[in-house]
Each structure stands twice: as structure tokens, then as C-alpha cells.
């Protein structure tokens, strides 16, 4: 079975197709969810969120393009885990900056889309390994020590490159008129 056939199977609510995706991607989804909530919650919570992620895949299979399932799952897993953390009133242990006004202040969807475009642009402007370090920390919520270990780069370099990535993102947002000037 390939991803195209498996997706088609999902749209027909074929359980074998779902099992194919779970067999293939559950460790990936579990890892993302664990990175985000693992320190604050139990393995049972990780199991709950991960199964919710595959439930979303089951329900939305027809809107996902072949070849995009892994990225889709990563986005859903990340957001669901973060929702779970918010519900428990827990914060992510990340080195964060406040970059722009609150999303709640945004009056128009077009602003959100423009920010997404700028974020993507900033990512594209980052060189290896800055982009990967940035994503590992802010997207996959990996602690700096884990990034250093997995990428074989020392911790101080990771910190330097992360700071550089933050600067590039701020530049892009500032160009788009989104970044607060007093940062």
C-alpha cells in the first residue's frame, strides 16, 4: 500500500488504511506530543492526544494530498498537544520572545495569513543548520540540550544560532509591519 492508496482507503473508512498510517506515523506523532506535554503530563495523556490526532486524520482524509500526510500530522499533533497544555494551564519551557500583538487583536484573517507568509519567508531565509535548530526548538518544542545531542552541535552554538534565527524572524515581521518596535 502506498500513501495515495492508503488515503483513498481512509476516505472510504477502511480500518486497514488507518492501521497503515498509525503503524507508519504513530512513533513520529507520539514523539511530537511527548516533547510538548511529556514533562507536564502522563503517558496516558500522550496516548489520548496521539489517538485524537489520528481521529482527525480519519475524519479529514479527503482534504489531504498524498505526500503531505506527515506534515499534516505534525501540525495537528503539535497544535493538539499545545491545546492540551493550555487546558492544563501549563506553559511551554521555551526561550520565547513576544514578537507581535496578540492574535486576538488581529481583526482580519488576512493579517494572520500575511504573518504565516512572513514566517515561511523567514524560515526560507535561514541557512542550515539555523532553520533546523529553530524548528526543533519552536515547532517541535525540543529542549536545547536535546537539540545539541541529536544534531551533534555544542550547546553554546545552538543558542547562538537560535538567537540569529529569532533575529531573522523579527526582521521579516518588522518589514511586514507586524513586529513591535520596542523589542
Amino acid at each position: 500500500m502506498d500513501e495515495r492508496r492508503a488515503l483513498r482507503g481512509l476516505t472510504q473508512h477502511n480500518e486497514t488504511a488507518l492501521a497503515w498510517f498509525i503503524e507508519r506515523y504513530a512513533p513520529y506523532v507520539n514523539t511530537i506530543v511527548f516533547n510538548i506535554i511529556g514533562n507536564a503530563m502522563s503517558i496516558k495523556d500522550v496516548e489520548e492526544v496521539s489517538s485524537d490526532v489520528f481521529l482527525v486524520l480519519w475524519k479529514n482524509a479527503e482534504r489531504i494530498r498524498p505526500g503531505k500526510v506527515k506534515a499534516y500530522l505534525s501540525g495537528i499533533a503539535r497544535n493538539m498537544a499545545r491545546d492540551r497544555l493550555r487546558q492544563a494551564d501549563q506553559a511551554l519551557p521555551l526561550e520565547e520572545d513576544i514578537l507581535t500583538s496578540s492574535a486576538a487583536d488581529m481583526e482580519h484573517d488576512v493579517e494572520v495569513r500575511e504573518q504565516a507568509r512572513l514566517v515561511n519567508q523567514a524560515m526560507l531565509n535561514m541557512e542550515y543548520p539555523d532553520r533546523e535548530i529553530f524548528l526543533r526548538h519552536y515547532y517541535y518544542c525540543q529542549p536545547l540540550s536535546q537539540i545539541a545531542e541529536e544534531m551533534g552541535i555544542n550547546l553554546s552554538t545552538i543558542k547562538t544560532r537560535l538567537r540569529r534565527g529569532r533575529g531573522k524572524l523579527k526582521d521579516e515581521l518588522r518589514k511586514g509591519g507586524f513586529c513591535d518596535e520596542d523589542i
Partner: peptide
């Protein structure tokens, strides 16, 4: 808005994160 919040707007599968053997696929 925080950086991690902004990244809610993207989907990524480019990073080769080391997968953890946490829960059996059969259980999920």
C-alpha cells in the same frame, strides 16, 4: 504573540527528529 504561537501557522516535516518508542502503535 510568541514565536511558538506563530509557528502554529505552518506545517513541517523536514526535521529528522529522533522518534521515541513511547507507546505501541497497536495501542494507538
Amino acid at each position: 504573540m510568541k514565536i511558538s504561537d506563530l509557528l502554529d501557522l505552518i506545517e513541517d516535516d523536514s526535521v529528522p527528529i529522533r522518534e521515541k518508542d513511547i507507546i505501541a502503535s497497536e495501542r494507538i
